[in-house]
Design a protein around this nucleic acid. Structure first.
Lengths: 263, 263
DNA sequence: AGAAATTTGCAAGAATTTGTTCAAAAATTT
DNA sequence: AAATTTTTGAACAAATTCTTGCAAATTTCT
C-alpha cells in the first residue's frame, strides 16, 4: 500500500519492517520490493534488528522475536507467576458485588479472576476473552461476548467489529489486563486492534480497574490502550515502587496492593 | 487441488505442521502433500520440531508432544452417531473452497464440519458457536465471532445483540444446523432468541445450506428459524424419503444425500 | 560548498536448503 | 521365521539465499 518514492532512512525502514513482521513472517524479496530498496539493505536492517533482539532471522526472511514486546502464548503466560496473579485476582474480587455488570478483559490475571466469580451471584459478565467465556459457561451468570475478530495469541475478540456491540452496552466495572503499564502514559499492548477494543470498553465503563502485576509496571509496548486519566483503580503486588504510587495518586488512581506472600 | 502459490519458509511450515498435527493429520505423506514439499523436507522439519520438544516423531509420522494444552478448553459432548454426521460434514466440505467466506451455525453436525476446515486454506469463518470457534482457534483461518448473549445449552451466541455485528457482514455460504426440519414450513428450534439469530444470518447469506441428518426431518420445534423459501441446499443422509425429496425440489432446494456407510 | 562519514547497491564466493536416490532399518505379511 | 513392503537416514546435486568486499551514492559536518 505504501510505495514511497522518497528515500527512507534506516530507522524508518526498520519501523516499517517491524510493522510488516507483526502480521507474520516476511521474506526478504517481499520486504525489498515493498520498501523499494535492495535485498542487501533489507538484510542489513534485519541484522540490526536481530541485534536488538526484535527480530529472528530465518533463511529467506524473518519473523518477529518473542521479546518483551510480544506476548508469550497463552498457555505459557498463565504459568509464569500464578501465585501473584491469584492474589491480585482475589483483591479484585472484593470489588465485585452480587448483581453487578462487569467486563472481563483478556489476560491471565483477569482469567484468574474469572475462575473466582462462582463466589458471586447473578452477575452480568461481558467479555471479549474466549478463555473467560469458557470459564463462565456453566457459572449461571449472564454471559455476553462482544464479538469481533479473533486474535489467536491472546484468545480475545478485537477490532472494529467489537464496536457494534460494545456501544450498545453499559458497564459498571471493567477489569482490564495489559501488557505494559506506564505511570506517565498509561496502558499499552502489542496489537493496535486490541488496543482499540480496550479503549472502547474504557469509554463505556463507570469504573476502570487495571489488574497488573508489578512486572508490567514501567513496561511500554507498541500500542497505547488507555491513558492514565481513564484509569480509576490499579490492583498490583508489592513490587510497585513508592514513587510510582505517589505519581498515580496524584492522578487520582486508587492503588490496591496485595499482601506479600510468605515463602 | 491444493493451492500452492509461493514457497513457504521453514517456520511457516513448522507452524502449519503443528496445526495439522493438532487435528490428527500425522502421516509424513499427508503432510508432504498438504504443504507441497517433499517428504524429506517434512522429515527435516519434524526433526527440528522434535528438538524443540513440540513434537514426538514416530514411525510413519509424528504426534504432538503436549496434548493437554489446547484441547480441554471447551469440553466436548460425545455425539450420538458420529459416523452419519461426519458423512454429512464431508459432503458439506465439498461445497467450501479456498478463500470462501462462510458462516458456521451451532449444532454437532456443523461442529463436525468445522473440524475438517483445516483442509481448506485462507477462509473467513464467521460463527456464533463457541465450539466451532474453539476448533478453529489455531487453524490459521480468519475467525470472526458474532457476539451476543451466551446460551449454555447450545454453546452459541444469540439474541438481539448479535444483530449489531451480523448486519455489518456479508456471507457467501451459511451452514446451518437445526433441531427440526419440516419440508412444508422450514427449520425450527427451541429458543426464540436462537431462531432470531438464525434468521438474521439467513438474510445476510448468498447461499443457505442446511445440515440435518434424517432424524431431524419431519420434526417441528417451537420457534421457526428459517422458511423453506430461504433454503438453497439440504445435506442429509439416505434416510430421507423420496416424497420429501420431491417436495423440496419443487421448492428449488437442492438435496445432497450422503452415501450409505458399509459396515 | 567541500570533505568526511555513512549508507546503499552490486557481484562473487560461501553457506543453506531442498529434492532425489539408495542402502539400511523397521514394520507388515506370508 | 523369512520375505515383502514401507519408512528412514545419509549423501549428493541443484537451486536459492547469505556474507563479504568494494565502488557509487547519499547524508552530515564544518
Amino acid at each position: 500500500m505504501a510505495s514511497e518514492k522518497r528515500k527512507l532512512l534506516s530507522p524508518e525502514r526498520e519501523q516499517l519492517i517491524l510493522r510488516a513482521l507483526n502480521k507474520g513472517i516476511c521474506r526478504i524479496e517481499q520486504l525489498s520490493s515493498e520498501l523499494g530498496v535492495s535485498e542487501a539493505t533489507v538484510r542489513r536492517d534485519l541484522v540490526s534488528l536481530e541485534e536488538q533482539t526484535k527480530v529472528r532471522r530465518v533463511h529467506g526472511g524473518a519473523i518477529i522475536a518473542q521479546s518483551p514486546k510480544t506476548e508469550p502464548i497463552f498457555a505459557e503466560k498463565a504459568s509464569i507467576n500464578p501465585g501473584e496473579k491469584n492474589l491480585i485476582a482475589e483483591a479484585a474480587l472484593e470489588l465485585i458485588h452480587d448483581s453487578d455488570t462487569i467486563y472481563l478483559d483478556g489476560g491471565s490475571t483477569v482469567q484468574a479472576l474469572s475462575k473466582m466469580l462462582v463466589r458471586r451471584k447473578n452477575l452480568t459478565v461481558i467479555t471479549n476473552s474466549l478463555m473467560a467465556a469458557a470459564e463462565l459457561m456453566e457459572s449461571g451468570h449472564r454471559l455476553i461476548l462482544v464479538g469481533g475478530e479473533f486474535r489467536a495469541i491472546s484468545r480475545t475478540l478485537i477490532g472494529p467489529l467489537t464496536a457494534n456491540i460494545i456501544s450498545a452496552l453499559h458497564i459498571d466495572k471493567a477489569f482490564m489486563g495489559t501488557i505494559g503499564f506506564n505511570p506517565d502514559y498509561g496502558m499499552s499492548t502489542t496489537d493496535p486492534n486490541e488496543a482499540y477494543t480496550k479503549e472502547l470498553i474504557i469509554k463505556r465503563s463507570n469504573v476502570v480497574i487495571v489488574l497488573a502485576d508489578s512486572s508490567k509496571i514501567g513496561v511500554s509496548s507498541f500500542a497505547l490502550s488507555g491513558g492514565i486519566a481513564d484509569i480509576d483503580i490499579l490492583v498490583t503486588d508489592s513490587g510497585i515502587s513508592q514513587k510510582t504510587i505517589e505519581k498515580l495518586k496524584k492522578n487520582k488512581i486508587e492503588v490496591i496492593i496485595t499482601q506479600q506472600e510468605n515463602s
